[in-house]
Design a protein around this nucleic acid. Structure first.
Length: 563
RNA sequence: UGGGGUGUAGCCAAGCGGUAAGGCACGGGACUUUGACUCCCGCACGCGUAGGUUCAAAUCCUGCCACCCCAGCCA
């Protein structure tokens, strides 16, 4: 912080209740008055990050940013049986992709194992922790029920010296997995189960991805987390609602340990839910492992790598998170709002291009065979400085099947016999009919152009209601296009009473072959993103090759046309 | 049943004793060489509910109701 301009917390614009609490802490006489706000994002490296994590990331890093503070990135790797390095790199990549920077403050909870061990000994010496020999099952049986207290472990009053010795031998590997635990001695009658002598350490022989076989005892989250926060000087430890009743234990650990460098404060907020998808790691993993999706980065997945492949931009995700707000109400946000945020970003920034998904030939019968000409088409009407590109026009074009109806529906103003439409930036044409094969399948649509309307302007100023996109048949590039829709066909596949796998939508992926795209796409590299005029936003898929283009539809354009 | 939370529109969400912001969705209109974008208009006599305090209550008090989380040697 710049020492010449004293930091005034009240200058910060409050965006939600957490900011209010932090401001209060920062004021004269407050808990952290005069200190720099310091938060952390502590993922467990046991899976890929999803948009729910993005909420936590934006809150953790964003709050630090707003208060000119710092945010650490810390791998909460206290359970080697579930974690793996595989995930560490993807987590770092996803956070960076979202646009956040943790500077040189990248930590692992496992870095603190030695300190945690010493601090545990301190608790034992104070009579606040003891080594217990109850089995997991016995512990469950003696924990009591909601209204009735737990019954004390036979080892609850074991002398500190004895526990100290046992704990050292646990660490030395003298006992098998699960034989002993170190438990806090707190309150067996508490209505909060977390306070009924919670386990602090367990014996677990699993190769840790960083410390290898150096340890065979591992600290539990409730014991480790407050220590991690305190050692890093975290001022505000933001987490989700389900940790609310762990806070008394968090505070108990902090309050009963001497020598901790700081006293962090835990604040909880509601996690993000989005309809038509699932957010739990377990369920996402199941989708991957059962082959319902192609992988963690399947474009239908709510994972950050999935959204990235789908064409979501970091800016759109950040905007989404910032705008849904932060509160303590369990909530489910409409997927439509995420889509809105993407459209908003891409409308401003995506290059326009013409592409035909369901190709039908349009023959301009009065346009000379063999002739062709080019038109300069604007790349992005929202960004005139992006200039124009040349697009080739000739006698035979591809148009979308949707843009022709032999017998027009009411209020339909595209191609139908006798009607005039404008071919974007080219000419005005009048539909003269169509040709079909013996089975009635549409072979081609025919039309005559008005040579005086070059550029699409009617010389006599007559109004042309419809403008459609087209691609020159001779120069068109072929591509595969993948259309995505909700993975589930029910708004709440997460509902407890249903098996989410029974509600997968059969239409979540529709693959189109032989789509015709403007020649300008040739040679484009991932992550090129475009608006296919009148259709939606598309991006090149990572599997795309110069000789085999593959596009993903990120989101369609809104369409107010209804028959 | 004990403990911890939360109830403002279809979905998010402001509001902090002075008479219900904003966004998404939705409906209507204007504009339009994208049925997009943009721009207008509409959308809670009502804040879970019943009482109470007050000149005045979504905001304070009391009771009730509903929903979420907790009995891992997971995080």
């Amino acid at each position: 912080m710049d020492s010449t301009t004293p930091f005034d917390p009240d200058r910060i614009e409050t965006t939600h209740f957490i900011d209010e609490i932090i401001k209060e802490d920062l004021r004269e006489g407050g808990r952290t008055a005069g200190k720099q706000v310091h938060t952390r994002f502590p993922p467990e490296p046991n899976g890929y990050l999803h948009i729910g994590h993005a909420k936590a990331i934006v809150i953790d890093f964003g709050t630090a940013e707003r208060f000119s503070g710092l945010c650490n990135l810390r791998m909460d790797d206290t359970n080697p049986s579930k974690e793996d390095v595989e995930y560490v790199d993807s987590i770092r990549e996803d956070i960076r992709w979202l646009g956040y920077d943790w500077g040189d403050r990248f930590y692992y909870a496992s870095d603190y194992f030695p300190e945690m061990y010493e601090l545990a000994c301190q608790l034992i010496r104070k009579g606040l922790a003891y080594v217990c020999a109850l089995t997991a099952e016995q512990m469950r049986e003696t924990r009591g029920t909601l209204p009735t207290p737990a019954t004390p472990s036979p080892w609850r009053d074991r002398p500190a010296a004895e526990s100290l010795d046992l704990f050292a031998r646990m660490k030395a590997g003298e006992f098998p997995d699960g034989a002993l635990t170190l438990r806090a001695r707190i309150d067996l009658a508490s209505g909060n189960f977390n306070m009924r002598d919670p386990v602090l350490y367990r014996i677990l022989r699993a190769r840790h991805h960083r410390t290898g076989d150096q340890w065979c005892i591992y600290p539990m989250y409730d014991y480790a987390h407050p220590i991690e926060d305190a050692l890093e000087g975290i001022t505000h430890s933001l987490c989700s609602l389900e940790f609310e009743d762990h806070r008394p234990l968090y505070d108990w650990v902090i309050d009963n340990l001497d020598g901790l460098p700081s006293r962090p404060r835990q604040i909880e907020f509601a996690r993000l839910g989005i309809n038509y998808t699932v957010m739990s790691k377990r369920k996402l993993r199941l989708l991957v492992e059962t082959g319902r999706v192609s992988g963690w980065d399947d474009p239908r997945m709510p994972t950050l790598c999935g959204l990235r492949r789908r064409g979501y931009t970091p800016a759109s995700i950040r905007s989404f998170i910032e705008r849904i707000g932060v509160s303590k109400v369990n909530s489910t946000v409409d997927f439509a709002f995420l889509e809105h945020c993407l459209r908003e970003d891409l409308n401003q920034n995506a290059r326009r291009i013409m592409g035909v998904l369901h190709p039908v030939k349009l023959v301009i019968t009065n346009y000379p065979e063999g002739k062709s000409e080019t038109f300069a088409v604007e790349n992005n009407p929202e960004q005139p400085q992006d200039g124009t590109r040349e697009v080739t026009f000739s006698r035979t074009l591809w148009i979308d099947a949707d843009d022709f109806m032999e017998e027009p529906a009411k209020k339909y103003f595209r191609l139908f016999p006798g009607n005039e439409v404008r071919l974007k930036t080219a000419y005005i044409v009048r539909c003269t009919g169509c040709r079909r094969d013996a089975n009635g399948n549409l072979l081609e649509v025919t039309a005559e152009y008005d040579p005086e309307s070059r550029g699409g302007n009617a010389p006599d100023g007559r109004r042309i209601k419809g403008t459609i996109h087209w691609v020159d048949a001779q120069t068109a590039v072929e591509a595969e296009v993948r259309l995505y829709d909700n993975l589930f066909n029910v708004a709440d596949p997460d509902a407890a009473e249903r098996n989410f796998l029974d509600h997968l939508s059969p239409d979540s992926l529709v693959t189109l072959q032989g789509c015709k795209i403007e020649a300008a796409v040739a040679g484009m590299q991932v992550p090129a993103a475009f608006q296919f005029l009148r259709l939606g936003y598309f991006c090149l898929d990572k599997d795309s090759r110069p000789d085999r283009l593959i596009f993903n539809r990120s989101v369609s354009l809104k369409d107010s046309y209804r028959t």
